[in-house]
Amino acid sequence: MAGRLEALWFLALVCGVVVSQDVSQLETHLSHLTQVRHPGVPHNTREAARSYIMDQMSQYGLTLHHHTFNTTIVTNSIPQTIQGQNIIGISEGSGGADDTLIVVGADYDTGLGRHPLEDNGAGVAVMLEAARNYMDAIDPTGDFTAKGTMIFVAFDLNTREYGGSAGQPGSYHFLHRWLWPYLNQDSSKLKGVFILDSISRFNHEARSQYLPPGFEETFPEAYEHISGEEMKGNFLAAFTRNSTTSHHLVEALNSNYLKERKARLVRLEELILRNGARINTDVLSMFNHQAHLPFWTFNPTGKPTPLPAILITDTDVYRKPIDSEVCTDPCSADKFLTRRRRVAMTISTSALTHTLLNLQASRRSHGGTGNTGSSGGDTALKLYSIASSPYVPDEAAQD
């Protein structure tokens, strides 16, 4: 008993300094994303979110690009052309022959009738925090040196969630009109893409996770794991195509979630869409409207060129929310960030940051400057201290 209390005291000591800092940043991000960000909304909520994201990326030291595009949405059965803007932040790598690129992306708009923090404020917040932590870590005073290039992108106008729209979403335009030219039309330079879309809903109750008919045929391994856990919604799904590169990306991310699972709140479940797998429209509807799809179906010259993209999601409407965590309008960032969500989103931020540093950076041999401020390598060291902190029982994360 004394050992357990000591472990909990140590975790409280570490998390009181470390996790609260990340939660404070996450809450700040979410506070700028509490309103519906749809072009049909009379207020300039999309524009305000866009300005905030641009400001944050600039503060982190990322090179900022604005990618403007036109697409079509349908309002009151009337198609109309509308302008969107993807926000892109770049951290250049070494520039050498082995300089590869990883993209982390999240939609920042909202479908009508959707919860603005679930769709997709939480995804944007974690993306921004991963960007901040990564840039802190590779700062000249930090503990890492960038090897590869990192691109963080907030996509506008996910028309696939608007209903009746004939236009292509922002992620499609980003890939075809911006990223492909940036890569000089060389897919070998792209190491992979992580897409964050609806990542804040967790439920540890049995039968809280719905799987559509036919899921067991399309994703047999995942079905076995999820059913073995009594259909609990206690995981983030990583939808991926069946390729060595994609599997390597999921493994890299999952290894960092496993470190964080001392908190026993979040696990990563890989859902591999194997070549020739049987799939029906019910199953397809789980993952046919998010920002990864243009990467999977990329066909620039008449020859299919699927790119390694991983969709990270809580499965959204396929998971029953916990009654006590339903945050109705008006929903503040503080009210939305229940203890469960705070811990889960912090773990996701940390795991993603670790993964990006593992894949795109190398630790400096001098071990950093050893500063104790809130910038530079200190953030990375704090994140690593979370990963090595002791076990937290489930009840410690309850409200």
Rank of each mutant, 00 (worst) to 15 (best):
F202R: 00
T301V: 11
Q290L: 05
G368H: 10
L293G: 07
H176E: 10
A263E: 07
E270L: 04
N371F: 09
M135D: 08
T281D: 09
V317E: 04
L381R: 14
V17A: 01
L352D: 03
E269S: 06
G89K: 04
N299I: 11
G121W: 06
P306W: 10
A137Q: 11
V392F: 08
S365E: 05
R340V: 05
R364S: 01
Q209A: 15
L13A: 05
T338S: 15
H32P: 02
Q35P: 01
H366S: 08
K303Y: 12
G142C: 00
R274M: 13
F215W: 09
P79K: 07
A309F: 01
K259N: 03
Q398F: 04
G95A: 12
N133H: 07
V41Q: 06
F295G: 07
E47G: 13
S91N: 15
H66I: 12
R278S: 14
L273T: 03
M345F: 00
Y223W: 13
T353Y: 04
L183D: 02
T313V: 04
I138A: 01
G302A: 10
F287W: 11
N184L: 03
L381V: 03
A125D: 14
G163Q: 10
S362G: 05
E269N: 03
S20W: 10
G192R: 00
